[in-house]
Design a protein around this nucleic acid. Sequence first.
RNA 1: UCCUGAGUAGCUCAGCGGUAGAGCGGGUGGCUGUUAACCACUAGGUCGUAGGUUCGAACCCUACCUCAGGAGCCA
Length: 457
Amino acid sequence: MFTIMPDTLRYILASESALTSITVRGWVRTRRDSKACSFIEVTDGSCFKGLQIVVDASLPCSSLMPSILTGASIEVDGDLIASPAAGQKWELQAKDVRLLGEADATYPLQKKGHTPEFLRTIAHLRPRTNLFSNVFRVRSRMSFAIHRFFQEKGFFNVHTPVITSSDCEGAGELFRVTTLKQGSNAKPEDDFFGRPTYLTVSGQLQGETFACALGNIYTFGPTFRAENSNTARHAAEFWMIEPEMAFYDLDADMTLAEENVRYLASAMIQECPEELEFFSKFVDKNLLSRLQQTIDQPFQRISYTDAVDLLLKSGRTFEHAVVWGEGLQTEHERYIAEEHVKGPVTIFNYPKGIKPFYMRQNDDGKTVAAMDLLVPGIGEIIGGSQREERLDVLTAAMQHHGLSEADYQWYVDLRRYGSVPHAGYGMGFERLLMFVTGVSNIRDVIPFARTPGHAPY
RNA sequence: UCCUGAGUAGCUCAGCGGUAGAGCGGGUGGCUGUUAACCACUAGGUCGUAGGUUCGAACCCUACCUCAGGAGCCA
C-alpha cells in the first residue's frame, strides 16, 4: 500500500517552509465542522504536537467527515501551508482524505481529560493519549541516554540472565520458573534445569563476574520481585540499570551514581523539550526547577550515622522512632531529602545488620560501604555498595547470614582468583522516569504494569 | 499484608431513606476559519457483587471484589 516511507509529523511540523503535495497518516484527535470546511486534528505519535487538517466542504471526500470520529486512522494528501488562524504555525490544506480504519462511538478515549486510573484499564489504547505518548517517548529517549552515558565512559553492556538459580540475597521474593505440572510431587532435580530456578531479582552477582574481567560494565534489563507490594513505587516487573566497576571504592561509586542522575536530568531537558513542557504544565509544576537544581547543585552526602543524628535533633516527631541500627523509614528519608537537604542526597555507611552479605565491611566493624541515593518526591532511586572483596571476610559474612558457600562457589571464586576492590549500584529505571517526568505512579511509566493480582495483557 | 477512602450513564461526577441527575462523549438539527468550538433537542443506568434492616435502600448494616492514597518490603 505504501511505496515510500511516510514522513512523520515530527519532521513535517519542523519544516521551515510550505510544502506541496505531501501525505500524512495518523489518528484523529478531534474534528470540528464549519459551513465551508472541517478541521481535523491528527497525531501520529512521532511528536507531541498534532497537525490541523483543513478539508474544504466542496471536496468529494468531505462526505467522509461523519465517519471521521476521534480515534479513526486516516491518510491525507495536501499542501502544508501557513495557518491563517491562531493556534498553530502550519496546517494541511487537504486535497484528498482516505479513511484507513474507522473508530465508532465506543472508542474509549474522548475529547476530554481522563484519569490515569481509567487509562490503566485500557493500557492498549493509552499510548494514544497526550500523557502517555509523552511518557513513552521519554522512556525511549532515557533508555538511549542511559546506554550513551555508560558507553561514552567505556563501559560494556552485559546481558545477565533472566532465569537464574541464585538469589541475590536481600533483594526480595522470587518468582519460581518451572516446567513441572501444578501439584506434581516431582523433585527439583526433575525440573527443566535440574534445580530450582527463578526470574532474576538482580543481575548484580553475575555483573560482578564481568566487572572482574572487563573492568567496567552495566546491565539494563527487566527484573522481577514477587513481593506483595502495593504502592505507587513498586512493580513486580521493572527495569533496572546495574553498573559494576572494578577498582572502584564507595566514594567513586557514589560519584558515578550522582553523575548518572545528573546526566539523565540534563538529557531530559535537552532531548525532550516538548514533553518536559507538557509535564511541567499538567503533571508537576516544579519539575523544571527540580531538574535544573539537580544539574546545578552538587549532591549532598550524609553518613547514615550523621543522618540519624540530624533526624534526632530535627525536633520532629516521627511515626517511627529513629534508632541507630535500624533502617531509615520513608518519612525519615523524605525529611532528609525534601526538608533538610531540599535536593538529591546520598546516605552512606549503613549498619551491617540491615544489609546483605556481599557489602564491604568498614573498619569500624559496625557499618558496611553501602549507599542510597534519595531524590525529593520519590525517595530511593539508586542503591549500591562497595562489594566485599576479601575472601575471609566474605565467607564469614555468608556464614553469619546462614548462606552455604557451595551455593555461591562461583561468586566466592572471584575473591579466590585475582580479587579486586569493586563497587556498583542499581538504579530503578521507572523511578528515574518518575523523577524526570513528575508522574507519580510507577504503573504509568511502564507500558504494561505488573503488580500483585494484575497482569491482563 | 496492614490502615484509610471510593465504586451511580461510555468518561468525570452530583444525589446520601421516598419517581435515577448534570457535564463531556454519541445521534439529530442549527450556527460558526474552528482550536477539548458553540446553541437546541434526543438516546443512553440490575446505582461493584451477595446477603441483611426497613412499608420503602443508590443512600443504613455485614461480607466479598476492585481501585486509589498512606504504611511495610525495596529499585
